[in-house]
Amino acid sequence: MAMQFLCSAHRQQLKRSKIVAEHRWDEWMEAGREAFAQKDWQAALKYLGCSFELSEMLLNNDHYPSLSNIDRYMVSGHFLAECFGRCRDSCLQRHCLLAVHHHLLKVLRSPQGRGLSLHRNVEISLQMLSRHYEAAGEEEMLQACYQESMRLLKRSCH
């Protein structure tokens, strides 16, 4: 399930120019961080959600995944997940965390992604997932994900 925060007009407009899309991502992340700091969860969800969707678009338009787009996706996804957590929506929080992690693993599995240094990204993502699953008392559910992540990291390093 892909979350949608952008209207179709904005989506089409942002697909036309990578530079404009990156600029909007910066603006929306800043607005989302400010709203988050002020505990204005609804505004934060709006801006962080748009940033997350936009970062996913930027990643999907990359023929060769770039670390900057992967980092954008990770930062906005983790921030959005944290915001959902503050709104007490653990299902959407988990959805965001898993979406980020699964995308990292997808990149690691791809021929283009094998050359990227994603060890820190995967490590951070696993820490975020671990924190979430521990809070839910479901640590054991993360074991298979952890093992697959380590397997893919080892494969990409060799």
Rank of each mutant, 00 (worst) to 15 (best):
S90I: 07
S90P: 12
S90D: 14
S90M: 06
S90F: 03
L92T: 06
L92F: 15
L92G: 04
L92D: 14
Q93R: 15
Q93V: 04
Q93G: 13
R94M: 11
R94W: 00
R94N: 13
R94P: 02
R94E: 15
H95I: 03
H95D: 08
H95P: 00
H95T: 10
H95Q: 15
C96L: 04
L97H: 12
L97S: 06
L97Y: 15
L97V: 09
L98C: 08
L98K: 11
A99K: 13
A99Y: 06
A99E: 15
V100D: 09
V100M: 07
V100F: 09
H101Q: 06
H101K: 07
H101T: 08
H101A: 04
H102C: 07
H102Q: 15
H102E: 15
H103I: 05
H103T: 15
H103D: 11
L104Y: 07
K106I: 01
K106N: 14
V107E: 03
L108Y: 07
L108W: 04
R109C: 09
R109W: 01
R109G: 07
S110H: 13
S110R: 08
S110G: 09
P111D: 11
P111M: 06
P111Q: 11
P111S: 13
Q112I: 05
Q112W: 07
Q112C: 10
G113E: 05
G113H: 11
G113C: 05
G113S: 05
R114W: 01
R114V: 10
R114E: 09
L116D: 07
S117R: 12
S117F: 12
S117W: 07
S117P: 04
L118T: 11
L118F: 04
L118H: 06
H119N: 08
R120S: 12
R120H: 13
N121K: 09
N121F: 13
E123G: 06
E123I: 00
I124F: 09
S125V: 05
S125K: 06
S125P: 08
S125W: 05
L126Q: 08
L126P: 11
L126R: 05
L126M: 12
Q127L: 13
Q127Y: 02
M128L: 06
L129H: 05
L129T: 04
L129V: 08
S130D: 12
S130T: 10
S130R: 14
S130H: 11
S130P: 00
S130A: 04
R131H: 14
R131K: 14
R131S: 14
H132K: 02
H132N: 06
H132Y: 08
Y133Q: 03
E134K: 10
E134F: 00
A135I: 01
A135Q: 12
A135S: 15
G137H: 01
G137K: 00
E138L: 12
E138G: 00
E138S: 07
E139H: 03
E139I: 04
E139R: 14
E140D: 04
E140M: 00
E140F: 01
E140A: 10
M141S: 10
M141N: 05
M141Y: 02
L142N: 03
Q143M: 03
Q143N: 02
Q143G: 00
Q143H: 08
Q143W: 03
A144K: 09
A144C: 02
A144H: 10
C145R: 04
C145Q: 08
C145H: 06
Y146C: 00
Y146T: 09
Y146I: 01
Q147K: 11
Q147A: 10
